[in-house]
Amino acid sequence: MDLRQPLDSRAYLLMLLLCTIWSLQQITLKATAADFSPTLQLALRSGIAALLVWGMMRWRGEQLTVRDGIWKPGIAVGVLFAFEFLLIGKGLQYTSAGHMIVLLYSAPIFAALGLHWKLPSERLAPLQWLGILLAFAGIAVAFLGHGSATSVDMLIGDLLAVGAAMLWAATTVVVRTTRLATLPATQVLFYQLAAAFVLLLPGAWLIGHTTFHMEVPALWAALAFQALAVSFFSYLVWFWLLRFYLASRLGVLSFLSPLLGVVLGAWLLDEPIERHFMIGAAMVLVGIVLVSGHAWLQQALQQRRA
């Protein structure tokens, strides 16, 4: 029996906090990029957060599970996680924080397709297929607006954002379809963070993302925010919410993040809000709600008919 409950005021407030943190992570990376290379920042935050998660595991008497080859999918999700953030770090060099977060949140579409193929229980309903078509059409509309020569760099960045979304989706599929699904969330998170640290450090060097002006206090504050608020606090709170509340409703609320990302990017970074991109983004978000919130929408319709 599923004991998860509908959302209450505590869940709404925590989700608003998490969505704000998730939207600010891209803005922080973009705002500090000139003095603190995004890929290097992502590597260091992953290392710090991995140590914090390891400390929590030790405090709880929890050992990292490596038996029976379970470490193999653990390493796999770590590699996918690392390359996802490598593309994010590189992509922010070309595109805006608003574009990055909206396109990154197309990940549930790719995850739904992967799970449809891998798990019989995750077969897509007709309404979800409509959502996927709408989301892909929205991505096409967002890209079609890149018509001038001055937007070539942004097009590259947007393509890297979609690539990062695919890697995020692949991570979800691996976790759901392997024995990682039986592990505590802290262990899966540790695999991801540790691999990201190990791989992103040389990755930052290879792509020339090694700038870190240590004498600037704001950069240390940015690193603390990324490590403590984003990679440690927000992920653990998200997993905690999934234990007690209905996942479909939490998933729909999580798409406040790209909306907040566009608004905060325009406010804090003076990023332009292009008409074509907003139309495409709206189509993507509606499509994602149809896919991720299908169970919730179906339940709401049944209650309305009753």
Rank of each mutant, 00 (worst) to 15 (best):
F232M: 03
F83N: 03
G203D: 05
S234R: 12
T211W: 02
Q192G: 09
L7V: 09
S292Y: 02
Q192T: 10
T150W: 13
R58Y: 10
S254M: 06
M56H: 02
V291H: 05
W267M: 11
F225R: 03
A34F: 09
I27Y: 01
H209G: 15
L159Q: 09
Q128G: 11
I88T: 09
L144M: 14
L167D: 06
G145I: 04
R179E: 11
A218R: 14
L52T: 07
L115G: 11
M278E: 13
R305M: 12
L115V: 02
T182Q: 10
A306L: 15
L189W: 00
L256H: 08
L103M: 07
G163W: 00
V53N: 01
A247K: 12
L24K: 10
V198R: 08
L42F: 03
P38R: 15
L242C: 06
A181F: 11
E84C: 14
E215H: 14
A97P: 11
M154T: 03
L242E: 00
L241G: 06
L201R: 15
M15I: 03
M100V: 00
L115Y: 06
P272G: 02
V230R: 07
F36R: 11
A164T: 07
G280M: 13
T39L: 15
V230I: 13
E84G: 05
T32S: 08
M100D: 08
G98S: 00
A165W: 01
L80R: 04
T211N: 06
S23D: 13
V262I: 11
A135P: 05
R179S: 12
R10S: 07
L7T: 04
H209V: 08
A221V: 14
V198M: 09
A82W: 02
I207C: 10
Q226W: 11
L199V: 06
L180N: 09
L52A: 13
V252F: 14
Q25K: 12
D158F: 01
G157L: 03
Q299I: 10
V237L: 08
L24D: 02
E274H: 15
S231D: 09
W54L: 15
F83G: 05
A76E: 12
T28P: 02
L200H: 15
L206T: 13
G61D: 02
V237G: 00
A185V: 01
I156P: 00
F110S: 06
G114V: 06
A281W: 02
A195N: 07
H116P: 04
T32C: 04
I288Y: 07
H213S: 12
R304W: 15
M283A: 14
A31G: 05
